[in-house]
């Protein structure tokens, strides 16, 4: 099974599961079209499209393999995936930290750490990372809080 076929199966499962969930949506008697109608139409459509995706992939499997050769991603360096993974990980951590540390502290840490991890591991670069982080956060803070009056999240720490 190709990637599309797997996606098709997953989406089919998702639409069936969500279709069952639509029974939970309340339906008041005074409206002619309840809030459950539209999701059901969409889920029906998605189920149909998933089956088509699955079918198309199974039918085309032979032809595609012959034509495609190596997928472009196969060539991508493993180090690249490490960077991608790291970025997601750090951003997730950053999002979790904002409500605790507040915007300023969390952002300085995030920018400094991520740029350090993505760049060359030299002292010069480390200093540069810290500098960029502080200057950037100071600029953003001045701009949004000081000037534009957009209050950025505070932490629970002082």
């Amino acid at each position: 099974m190709g990637r599309d076929a797997i996606t098709g199966c997953l989406l089919l499962g998702l639409s069936l599961w969500l279709y069952r969930q639509t029974a939970e949506i309340p339906r008041p008697h005074f409206v002619s079209v309840g809030p459950d109608v539209y999701p059901r139409i969409l889920l029906g459509l998605l189920a149909g499209l998933s089956v088509a995706l699955l079918g198309a992939d199974l039918l085309n499997r032979g032809g595609r393999r012959g034509r495609g050769g190596g997928r472009p991603e196969a060539r991508i360096h493993r180090a690249s995936y490490r960077d991608v993974f790291l970025t997601y990980l750090l951003f997730g951590g950053y999002t979790a930290l904002i409500p605790i540390l507040g915007f300023r502290a969390a952002t300085v840490s995030f920018v400094a750490v991520l740029s350090w991890c993505l760049g060359p591991k030299t002292v010069r670069h480390a200093v540069l990372c810290l500098l960029v982080a502080f200057v950037f956060v100071a600029a953003v803070h001045l701009m949004f809080e000081g000037y534009l009056r957009l209050l950025l999240p505070r932490g629970i720490l002082p």
Binding site: R104, P120, K121, T122, A126
Partner: peptide
């Protein structure tokens, strides 16, 4: 420019954190 050992990172982070 000298490439610092990996331990550098672990010194840098707490210092940074305290600063903040």
């Amino acid at each position: 420019m000298v490439s610092p050992p990996g331990a550098w990172r672990w010194i840098l982070l707490p210092v940074l954190f305290l600063l903040l």
